[in-house]
Design a protein around this nucleic acid. Structure first.
Lengths: 342, 342
DNA sequence: ATGACTATCCAAAACGTTTTGGAAATGCAA
DNA sequence: TTGCATTTCCAAAACGTTTTGGATAGTCAT
């Protein structure tokens, strides 16, 4: 609760100098700075963010708005992201505001928070095509960072994994093993990352003279175990040719596919190879699948720090070109993939 | 963005009057107020919250600090609480700051947030005996509300379910059915609510001339399915008398007890009656147990609104006596309880 | 006419910072 | 010695509100 004025009075130094000393300006004697810093620490001084914001225009507050209609598995993902972000911003002495609202109110929530002017910037997760949140934030000139790439335009800050590359790599690996009939059980069609993954999958096939079959590309609202189970059974029990390998949007889907295979009397990897993308959530470990699951891997948790960094720099006005980051994933070969039987 | 000064200048009315008109004070002529309101709307005026906060001393920001070491099931509970709270505060036009930190840093986080003075108040969940967070907040005179009752002292604001009553009611119900040998598989000993539940359980037994046996009261760090399973098997496979009924701290524990019963060839409710407390989490529904589970029920989600209310009124300085709320739970009789076999 | 009251308005202070625009002291070259 | 640059400091303004403490004019009962 000590203010800058208290320090000034106590030390007989002007408020100006105290402020400048604490903020690292060069026009204050090192010895004076030391004294001031010592006093500040002793008096437990913390700058009042509200006052600071009034003059600087910054509050040190960032926010994220989430819809409240997620099921239990998706919640785990959110919790992972939320706790990572909140911890990163905490390290940077910023406040992370979370707002969980009904989906239909979300834009209203954004508008209110923008109008109130308390928030320095936003984190947007799971962008969709022509995301109205992005449009709104851009119109109001509020800084934001997107986790994932929303559209073709690239005039915003983002952090993403290489969604195109990871399916492309997976498919090429399977082709290298001899597979030619490869299915992709993906995720919600409207999300940008699914589009990129499908493209990576299709390009890899075409690059080897194979034509993607739309019946072997599955979309779903939720990337769940059930979705994997149902998709695999449907795909595997159609007449005609069936795939010898599955690429999965996440490890839950892979688990569903394992189940489907078991139910149909097929074995992994003898009859079907399975490969998935692994977000490395704490409680669904690809390594403890039976057989252990081959994955492309990029821990969701690892995205918190870059996201926080990018948003902070965006707020500080860094040029956009530095704030567009795509990271490569690991490829981990385990026992769920092998040469095709036929 | 238009400021109050712009309106003042445009209308030739003092800043004071504009402010008071907009804030509904009675010392401004209705006609003047109309003019000012019209101008404000025309100029798209929105009060700058930051400036408002600076003078009022309130930030409109409340916070909750969580440790980051919870397992997946506990995370669901947290998510339920977090999303409920954030949505409630959003309705009140306040910001809900979430801070997830390593357990050993938590007190430091509180201190930092307190010192910065940006936070109007805190929500404390899962209090323990002599909770150091409570001590710290009280010392710094920062408003807070506790979910649950931490200690015997009652000089703080809290919201709680009737933990004493719910086990007492459960046990009396079982006694009414004819049971005399009743076990209680509870939860973490250090939490206040467990203490109260154990007391309710014991008092009910003693009230009917029965002496609680310590071997039949089980504590555990995590109220999990495994804990229920292990506890029930241990209790049921000891030599001598075994209980005919189990009271469970939550529905997960009950699920474990169902499993244990099945494994031991016992049937519910013929051989053992099971009763649990139900927090009404979205994905573990007591009604879809087989047989459907008899419960005392108080939805976790229902606590968000009262908690938010209490904290807001605490911040506004309401007397403590109005801010100590205990709500009753529902008792829902289903098919997991019946007369004892012997 | 006086005093008391009411209705309506306002100037200035305050909140805790940062920023602006110097001022004073010192060192150094000419 | 003068002039100039550098180092170190500071008073005052500014950010946009709310609040305080009146001021003014009009009304009404006495």
């Amino acid at each position: 609760m000590a203010t800058i004025k208290d320090i000034s009075k106590k030390l007989g130094i002007s408020v100006t100098t105290v402020s400048r000393a604490l903020n690292g300006y060069s026009d204050v004697n090192e010895e004076t700075r030391k004294r001031i810093q010592k006093a500040a620490k002793a008096m437990n001084y913390r700058p009042n963010q509200i006052a600071r914001k009034l003059v600087s225009g910054r509050s040190g507050i960032v926010a994220m708005v989430l819809p409240d209609d997620y099921g239990i598995t998706t919640r785990d993902i959110w919790f992972e992201i939320i706790s990572g972000l909140s911890s990163e911003f905490s390290k940077r002495d910023m406040d992370f505001v979370l707002n969980v609202s009904a989906r239909e109110n979300i834009l209203g929530v954004y508008q209110r928070m923008i109008d109130r002017g308390t928030t320095d910037g936003f984190i947007i997760i799971a962008p969709v095509k022509n995301d109205p949140r992005v449009a709104m934030l851009e119109k109001n000139k509020v800084p934001f960072v997107i986790h994932g790439q929303a559209e073709q335009r690239f005039d915003y800050a983002y952090f993403d994994i290489d969604n195109y590359g990871l399916t492309r790599r997976s498919v090429e690996y399977l082709i290298g093993l001899g597979h030619t009939r490869i299915a992709f059980v993906s995720g919600p069609k409207e999300h940008g990352f699914i589009t990129h993954r499908v493209k990576g999958y299709s390009d890899a096939l075409r690059g080897h003279g194979l034509e993607p079959k739309s019946a072997w590309i599955r979309y779903a609202d939720k990337m769940s175990e059930d979705f994997g189970l149902v998709s695999a059974i449907q795909i595997l029990s159609r007449g005609g040719e069936v795939p010898t390998a599955f690429v999965c949007g996440n490890t839950l889907i892979a688990k569903g596919i394992y189940q489907a295979a078991a139910s149909l009397g097929l074995s992994v990897p003898k009859d079907v190879s399975v490969i998935a993308h692994d977000d490395a959530l704490p409680d669904s470990r690809a390594v403890s699948f039976d057989p252990p699951l081959t994955v492309t891997r990029s821990p969701l948790r690892d995205s918190s720090a870059p996201l926080a960094d990018i948003l902070v720099r965006r707020i500080q006005g860094a040029p956009l070109s530095e704030l567009q980051v795509t990271v490569p994933d690991q490829f981990i070969e385990r026992q769920s993939t092998g040469k095709p039987a036929r």
